[in-house]
Amino acid sequence: MMSRKIWRTVEARFEEVLCALALAVTASCILTQVVMRVIVSEAAPWAEEAAVYGMVLAIYMGASLGVRERAHLRVLLMVNALPHRLRVASIVLADVIWLAFLLVLLWQFAIFLELAFSRPYITPGLGVPKVWFQLFVPAGLGLMIVRMAQVYYRWLIRGDGELPL
């Protein structure tokens, strides 16, 4: 029972907590940069990089959260004009196309990673291979696919009412 509760919290809050931490990293690094320059008059070249990578993580986790909440922006004017069954069909088709796009992107990212791991780029500020941060992208894409599967599982198998638009 306990583990089930933990699992449920993780399911509900995973991306949210990561996003909050990532945004906190971004904000703190920016402030550090300002303080270091103004008060100590020293450069913090790593801070700018860390701020950006925090944002990238927040964006991809936010995208996944957006799938869970069905918050991605669609133009529903034409779809809403359709009769109910066609409307559902149209959205399912749109989601399949979207999924296909995510899979193509993930596949291309695999090719990209092969190069990025074999010929690393060392970030000038933090001095570590950039590819570690680039992994945020496939992680986000993978989570988006998982969340999409979850939405459909709930709708088709558990029968939780309408397909939420």
Binding site: H72, L73, R74, V75, L76, M78, V79, S90, I91, L93, A94, I97, W98, F101, L102, L165
Partner: peptide
């Protein structure tokens, strides 16, 4: 038109 989210 069929409802694919704008970015995708």
């Amino acid at each position: 038109a069929i409802g694919v989210p704008v970015p995708f």
